[in-house]
């Protein structure tokens, strides 16, 4: 798969960090503003997809990327489960929100919701990786087979 014109390349080069930043912002502020792990994860994967579309898959070694995607997907879900287990060991109940009940921050602060932002982060990684894997499977893999 070939890349696109120089315009798309340059603009995506400029935009990608901002998009990624917005994605992280949505993930981190998931408990305060609309959005959260899923919406943020979609934004995160958006910039990887944009890069591949702009530069073409020649520049990225797929097999490596695919493996990385499924790896970080696994890491994301394991992290999520680990957070749930943390609640189990600290509070005796699955998904018990340990930090929030021990140190309640004031409402609408960044660190106010205990474990929820961490779960959001895990979900964000998971969603981004899963969507990236889907994208690679559907788009890049197929085009390579036909050309």
């Amino acid at each position: 798969m070939k890349g696109m014109t120089v315009i798309v390349k340059k603009i995506s080069q400029l935009m990608v960090p901002s998009i990624f930043l917005l994605g992280l912002y949505v993930v981190v502020h998931g408990h305060l503003t609309p959005g959260g792990g899923f919406a943020g994860g979609v934004l995160l994967v958006g910039c990887f997809v944009l890069q591949i579309l702009a530069y073409g898959s020649d520049e990225v070694r797929n097999d490596l990327k695919k493996w990385r995607a499924s790896l970080s997907e696994s890491i994301g879900i394991v992290l999520f489960l680990f957070i749930a287990l943390l609640g189990l060991f600290q509070g005796g109940v699955f998904f018990y929100n340990t930090i929030a009940r021990a140190h309640p921050g004031s409402a609408l602060d960044l660190f106010s919701a205990g474990l929820i932002p961490l779960s959001n982060l895990a979900i964000g990684i998971e969603v981004a990786a899963a969507l990236f894997a889907i994208f690679l499977t559907l788009a890049v893999f197929r085009m390579e087979k036909h050309t």
Partner: peptide
Amino acid sequence: IVALIIGLLFGNNF
């Protein structure tokens, strides 16, 4: 932290 992550990921190409 976020800025550091972005620097590591995209610093090469920005």
